[in-house]
């Protein structure tokens, strides 16, 4: 667990200082710089017939726009939110991939701060979208009192829906991303630490188990790349679904 709370480079995060700066923060900053650089290089000389670099960047942008935003929200309603969804997707993707990049070796999203901020951003955005579309009263009405339910059931449903809208949605977004990245890092550390231990400390035949754990480590690394992409996709997808709930017409 110490990996997630490394010693501060200056200041100290774990003792409650707000301005501590440690290894994870450094990784996050590096990732941000790399991501911006990549996007800038990809779109610097944007031409109508895209070159190779521009093509890759455009593929990513197009994926978010078509596969996530427009498929869930529809072409017209998606327009104001594409920028947010794209930012979230690329930020989460880059931060996740830092977990398998050599020398960085820890995902920027594997401590609670970043997922929490992104989830709160989503929460505020869909609340604002709902309020803007329906007005405060009507929005709460449609969210907390779903129509077509016999009225005594509201005693049960309304608190559940309130919990769902205001707490559970951002909380599950945060926990899903955080726990996935944390579990991934633990698995990676476990397999490679086991290889190290078996190869260097194990006596006799025990050394033969080392290639096995090393192969496991390679497998977990590839699996982590898959999980990183998947979690970025799911985060953006769920954000657009929550927006869709907020923007829904009355039934």
């Amino acid at each position: 667990m110490g990996d997630f709370f490394p010693a501060g480079i200056f200041g100290d995060v774990s003792t409650g200082s707000w301005f501590g700066f440690d290894r994870i923060m450094m990784v996050r900053l590096i990732v941000v710089v790399l991501l911006l650089l990549l996007l800038w290089l990809g779109t610097r000389k944007a031409t109508l017939i895209p070159g190779r670099g521009q093509n890759i960047v455009e593929m990513g942008l197009d994926f978010v726009r078509v596969q996530i935003a427009e498929q869930i929200l529809g072409k017209e309603r998606a327009k104001p939110y594409i920028a947010m969804l794209t930012t979230i997707f690329f930020a989460v993707l880059a931060m996740n991939l830092a977990g398998v990049i050599p020398f960085l070796n820890i995902a920027g999203t594997s401590r609670v701060g970043l997922p929490l901020v992104l989830a709160l951003w989503v929460l505020v955005t869909y609340l604002a979208a709902g309020v803007k579309k329906h007005g405060v009263g009507k929005y709460l009405m449609t969210q907390l009192f779903p129509p077509g339910v016999p009225w005594p059931a509201y005693v049960l449903i309304t608190p559940i829906e309130a919990l769902q809208v205001f707490i559970l949605r951002p909380a599950t977004l945060t926990v899903r991303l955080l726990a996935n990245m944390m579990a991934g890092h633990l698995m990676l550390a476990l397999t490679f630490a086991a290889t190290h231990f078996l190869l260097l400390e194990g006596g006799g035949l025990v050394k033969l188990a080392a290639p096995l754990t090393f192969a496991g480590g390679i497998f977990v690394t590839l699996f982590e790349v898959f999980v990183a992409v998947l979690q970025a996709y799911i985060f953006a997808l769920l954000a657009s679904i929550y927006l869709n709930f907020a923007l829904e017409e009355e039934h």
């Binding site: 599950t172 926990v175 899903r176 726990a179 996935n180 944390m182 579990a183 996709y233 799911i234 997808l237 769920l238 679904i241």
Partner: peptide
């Protein structure tokens, strides 16, 4: 399927946390 899988996944991750 991804939406459903994401919702189910949270339950397992709650166990981890």
């Amino acid at each position: 399927m991804m939406i459903g899988a994401a919702l189910i996944e949270v339950l397992g991750l709650l166990g981890l946390v």
